[in-house]
Design a protein around this nucleic acid. Structure first.
Lengths: 127, 127
DNA sequence: TTTGCTGCAAATTCTTTGCACTGGG
DNA sequence: CCCAGTGCAAAGAATTTGCAGCAAA
């Protein structure tokens, strides 16, 4: 049985409020001030548990793993200039269809990552 | 200037001959018998260098990083049953278009991973 | 000869685990 | 009460780095 814990609640809130894709370390250091004896292990344990319950999604990146509250199927965009990680809405049907075209197995899930220059950096470099 | 090294050559060959997506550890243990004082550090260094030169592609996975000789744009398929990593040909244009539909930045590259049951496992479970 | 490459081992980084303790149900 | 959840520190796994010797160019 899953019990309530204020640590888990705080982690969920933080992820939800940020709306972006922080690492476990980031969440930890943001929560630490208000919960001085929070442990990084607790953060990892809860993130893993939340993922198991389907409440969050993990994003495997070079270096550290990132976590995402978003439930809707979408893709991620990694800016090569500033390192930002953004969401891009994509149509599940279309993606799966493309994969299925040249593959006879069964596709149950997918993950799409785009790389390039984010709108912000494009604006900056134009200035 | 990049110098020839038999270690690097061996790593490239192994990657090319296998045709699949081994981890650095796998390559290392396969080459070790014929090169007894090969070091895992050398394997990592060369894989990173080859990636920088564009000769190979890295695939970031849960756990360990995998390496791929394939240059053509394609997607990867991860079998949830047997853990196999396979290639799926995909059309670059189509994928980038889908991303671009809801995003104003510039998409320069992408990576697509599919998850599901591979043809082999489908056959087995049917038996 | 010069400078990249190698092997080795130690160091890092990210994440997980063991354990005694606390607190929700 | 009982067991999931916690904090801490130690353990792990994957990868990187420092350095002295070796070997391409």
């Amino acid at each position: 049985m899953i019990k309530y814990s204020k640590q888990r609640q705080a982690i969920k809130n933080q992820l939800l409020n940020r709306g972006d894709h922080p690492t476990a370390e980031t969440l930890y250091s943001e929560l630490k001030p208000s919960m001085p004896n929070l442990s990084i292990a607790t953060v990892y344990r809860n993130l893993k548990q939340l993922e198991g319950m389907g409440e969050i999604t993990i994003i495997i990146t070079d270096g550290a793993t990132r976590y995402d509250y978003n439930v809707k199927p979408h893709a991620h965009f990694f800016c090569n200039k500033c390192g930002a990680v953004l969401d891009i809405d994509t149509d599940r049907e279309q993606i799966v269809k493309i994969g299925q075209e040249n593959f006879s197995g069964s596709i149950e899930g997918y993950e799409v990552n785009f790389y390039g220059t984010c709108p912000d950096c494009m604006t900056k470099s134009r200035a």
